[in-house]
Design a protein around this nucleic acid. Structure first.
Lengths: 234, 234
DNA sequence: CGCCTCTTTGAGCTCAATCAAGGTGTGTGG
DNA sequence: CCACACACCTTGATTGAGCTCAAAGAGGCG
């Protein structure tokens, strides 16, 4: 029964996530015990937009990008889901839920996939857990709202905010973005063109504000980035 | 005790909202009975961004716009809350909640204001109700996500989508937007300039696609508006 | 080794922003 | 009752941030 060993290990990982703070191992076993660990390769599809939603789950490691197709045919990245984030939970309560976005792995990632029914029967009975999910959703709305606020800001502010936003999702004070992020993905997330993103970030690299190695972006001068967020002219 | 009579009447209004579908009058009395009806004038402030959140509530009639200040000093409208929408509920579960946006009445409006504690004690115990709130949040996220998808679309598509999005929030098949909406507000909601919004909407007016009387926008040719949503060139 | 994805740089163009100026309606205080 | 302020709408002229197009180098992989 290797599978259940892996699952046991995963349940222990879950204890670190704030969604489950205050939960005991036995709670977790009830809430997630019937789950299945999905291991995704880079760029692999997890959920397809438009498909009926039979399951939801939690990001264990790595990251997933949630994206939609724009009318003009390219991707629009709507959110980056990092470890501890719940995917698709909040649509489980609909009568015939359908995934509203597609989810792709960014780098090798692991996901704990849980059947819809478990949400409707088990998760429903834990008000504190539902509150935690609300608070995750609230973060996500918050991030989207700030992005709306930055609509009229110059592109450099938007990029700076995006980097900070992702950094802040991780507890550590490290300034390396712990997920592989291409310029194209940044552009797709901001509704900008790759070229414009590259022009701004190249400039930052030259000025020693950031550093990129193999899609790992490191912020060298946090203060400068924070400055970029609010600067009106460049 | 006129107050309690008005409150009784309000509780009956609540029955029409889908958040409370399946609730009995006695449920509602428990959930909202300690509420207070707030009557707002046009442009009146309901909640101030940054203030500690002591209460949440439900829009009874009229509408409220949720907005934030942009770095450059003007407003960014983040959402239009219409009757049946819950405001600030999803931040109630935080330990020291603070309103993330400001809320202003659009035209004369009524709001049922409920103390935070009622949410934490009463609402918490109704899983189905929490699900309904999740579903409202889900609508809101959905709308924000589609807007992100339209980032690269021409302004006319964004305006068309906004009008349709608001219309769709009301059950009726009427094509009159039941809230006073200025060009400035449309611009602030889309991150565009007033002038650009006016140029596009004037054109639509001339072509008989829409009609405006005293900030009431009426869509005369729904099909044309839907067309505008996906058209790449104008 | 060819294919694919990602990055880079340059040149020109365009959509929408900005600036400017004028019109209308409403509320407010002298 | 008028004058003034203010919020909203409108139109025109000018400008610029960022898009598009084009071309090419640099890994990584079957």
């Amino acid at each position: 029964m290797e599978k259940s060993v892996a699952l046991q290990a995963a349940l222990n990982e879950l204890l670190n996530f704030k969604v489950f703070e205050g939960c005991s191992i036995s709670d977790l076993s009830e809430l997630c015990g019937s789950g299945e660990i999905v291991v995704s390769q880079h760029k692999e599809l997890l959920y397809q937009m438009g498909q009926p939603a039979e399951s939801f789950g939690i990001v264990l490691s790595g990251a997933y990008k949630l994206s939609r197709l724009t009318p003009s045919g390219d991707d629009a990245i709507v959110y980056f889901s990092t470890p501890g984030d719940v995917i698709a939970a909040f649509i489980m309560s609909q009568s015939t839920p359908v995934y509203p976005v597609s989810s792709f792995a960014m780098g090798p990632s692991r996901f704990l996939k849980i059947p819809k029914e478990v949400f409707l029967k088990k998760w429903k009975m834990h008000p504190d857990l539902l509150f935690k999910i609300q608070s995750l959703l609230s973060n996500r709305i918050g991030s989207l709202q700030i992005q709306k606020t930055l609509l009229k800001a110059p592109l450099s502010s938007k990029i700076a905010f995006l980097l900070m936003d992702i950094l802040n999702k991780y507890d550590s004070n490290d300034t390396v973005l712990p997920l592989p992020l291409t310029r194209k993905e940044i552009a797709d997330s901001l509704g900008a063109s790759v070229e414009s993103v590259i022009r701004i970030m190249s400039d930052w690299s030259k000025r020693g504000i950031i550093e990129t190695h193999d899609h790992q972006i490191k912020v060298l001068k946090l203060d400068k980035i924070i400055e970029e967020m609010s600067v009106t002219s460049s």
